[in-house]
Write a protein that binds this DNA or RNA. Structure first.
Length: 209
DNA sequence: CCGAGAATAT
DNA sequence: CATATTCTCG
């Protein structure tokens, strides 16, 4: 059994390098638009995307823009987009972001855990409702999946303190992202009219939006 | 070619 | 807002 319960964190540790865990949930995540836009977003379109194009043109103003927007002109790209409004390349849900997501849902309770509220509570700049909704959908499916499997509930129902939670859920080979975050138990039973709000984290009063 | 994940449409 | 479908990336 040793190997099996080597625990998921042997895997998540790769992706969670920084002690974000200790970071209470109230900061604007990464403060400036600079870090945010570039840290969470994934500029990798890879494949057919343009490699760093060495500008052979002599008549150009080279070092104007830093690492910023490196949208190369695609061939046949129709008239430019409205310059200022950047189109969103793609969102990558990093474990930290997912942690924040789960945290928000946990504090809202199933009732208020609707995309809009979640998005607002997360206060993550650049994150849109559609992003949350899509991820929420998958998250619900994930929860449903583990219900059908372990029959005994989420498996992770620790007596309050504890932190380290591990259930018979699934092996590390199963689900990648969702397993990364400790799943608050109360997700499965909306019929519970009781106030069991277990909050291991800060209440976060939601700044202002 | 198949699978997971995210985006988009209903 | 939730669900289903589609596209892209892996």
């Amino acid at each position: 059994m040793r190997e099996e319960d080597s625990n998921w964190f042997s895997r998540w540790e790769e992706e969670l390098p920084s002690p974000e865990e200790l970071m209470p949930l109230s900061q604007s995540l990464i403060t400036p638009h600079l870090a945010l836009a570039f840290d969470i977003r994934n500029p990798n379109h890879s494949q057919l995307l343009h490699p760093p194009p060495p500008p052979p043109s002599s008549t150009l103003h080279p070092p104007s823009q830093p690492s910023f927007a490196e949208f190369a002109a695609d061939s046949g790209a129709p008239g430019d987009e409205p310059a200022r409004t950047l189109k969103r390349p793609r969102l990558v849900w990093t474990p930290q972001l997912h942690k924040r997501f789960v945290d928000a849902v946990a504090h809202l309770g199933i009732k208020n855990a609707v995309p809009k509220t979640i998005m607002q509570l997360m206060s993550v700049d650049g994150l849109t409702r559609e992003n949350v909704a899509s991820h929420l959908q998958k998250y619900r499916l994930y929860l449903k999946r583990m219900q059908g499997l372990s029959g005994g509930g989420g498996g992770v129902a620790n007596g309050g303190s504890g932190g380290a939670v591990l259930g018979p859920s699934a092996d590390p080979a199963t689900d990648h992202l969702f397993a990364s975050s400790p799943v608050p138990p109360h997700f499965l039973h909306p019929g519970r009219a009781n106030s069991d709000h277990f909050l291991p984290f800060v209440p976060v009063p939601v700044p202002a939006l």
